Amino acid sequence: MYTVKEVAAMLDMTDHTVRYYTDQGLVPNLRRDGHNNRLFDEASVNWLLCVKHLRHCGMPIDDIKTYIGLCQEGDSTVKERYEIMRRQHAVARAQLEEAKLRLAYIEEKVGNYLGIMNDTEDDIKHRTLIPSEPLY
């Protein structure tokens, strides 16, 4: 069993976020000790990991609750859960493409500044805040 602090460290979350997600009912069958402290087993940690990924894709808490409820209902909801994950897959793929564009822009700027520092490029043409190519 793990404490809030241990789970937060494992999942790179804050203690507050872990407590918030549990208070929102996003960790089914959460155990507590004699002092009412939250205790997490492997299943609880996996629920939090799922919540973390879905939140990072922008899924609202209420939609995550719906998904978790469907999971708890069992096999009869597999098609609905598949559709939810299929939509989130599309969202995550779009976020990945946007991140690649941001990375390419930053890499270009890093290269430009390296060139300026090595006297192989002129700073004047790189002072603009507007990229030469549209970001999106």
Rank of each mutant, 00 (worst) to 15 (best):
E6R: 04
V7H: 07
A9Y: 05
T14A: 05
T14V: 06
D15F: 04
D15Y: 12
V18R: 01
D23L: 13
Q24P: 08
Q24G: 12
P28Q: 04
R31Y: 10
D33H: 11
R38G: 09
F40L: 05
D41Q: 03
D41V: 13
A43P: 07
S44L: 02
V45T: 09
L48D: 01
L48F: 00
L49R: 14
K52F: 04
P60Y: 00
I61T: 07
I61L: 01
D63K: 09
I64Y: 01
I68Q: 00
G69D: 15
L70M: 15
Q72F: 09
E73N: 09
D75I: 11
S76F: 11
T77E: 05
T77M: 08
T77Q: 14
Y82E: 06
E83K: 11
M85F: 10
R86T: 11
H89R: 15
A90Y: 14
V91S: 00
A92E: 13
A94R: 05
L96F: 03
L96G: 10
L96P: 04
E97Q: 06
E97P: 00
E98V: 08
E98N: 12
A99F: 04
K100A: 15
L101V: 01
A104P: 12
A104K: 09
Y105N: 10
E107Q: 13
V110H: 13
L114G: 15
G115W: 11
N118F: 02
I124C: 11
I124W: 14
K125V: 15
H126N: 15
L129N: 14
P131Q: 14
S132R: 15
E133A: 15
P134E: 07
Y136D: 12
